[in-house]
């Protein structure tokens, strides 16, 4: 059972995440897709660390820190989304254009 199989899982997850990011119009749903993408990257770090460089722990800790940062990022993003929703009564990403014009 090689490295490749793990990478296949993460690739599927990544592609699903990208597809969702491009297809969804709802900001929350886009955020969910972003979580998928990040998760795929985390798996890759862990896998590379485990199988290719077993004597060091860089990938492991990178994943650890990434999880922490993702949590923070999600919290901030949701705060912003809720705030925007309060102002424009919509989560539609195309309607959030008040600061564009």
């Amino acid at each position: 059972m090689g490295v490749e199989l793990y990478l296949v899982i993460s690739t599927i997850m990544l592609c699903a995440g990208i597809y969702g990011f491009l297809m969804r119009k709802n900001t929350l749903a886009m955020l969910i897709s972003v979580e998928l993408i990040l998760n795929a990257a985390d798996i890759n770090f862990a896998v590379f660390n485990k199988f290719l460089f077993p004597n060091q722990l860089e990938g492991h800790f990178f994943t650890l820190f990434a999880i922490g940062i993702v949590a923070a990022e999600t919290a901030i993003a949701i705060a912003i989304i809720i705030n925007v929703y309060r102002n424009v009564q919509s989560l539609d990403v195309d309607k959030i254009d008040k600061m564009k014009h």
């Binding site: 929350l28 999600t74 919290a75 949701i78 929703y85 539609d92």
Partner: peptide
């Protein structure tokens, strides 16, 4: 994260215009 997402979905009309 998932709990946060669930709560924010409850707070908004998140089902409209999903795609």
């Amino acid at each position: 994260v998932v709990v946060l997402l669930v709560f924010s979905i409850f707070l908004t009309k998140a089902d409209e215009n999903l795609n």
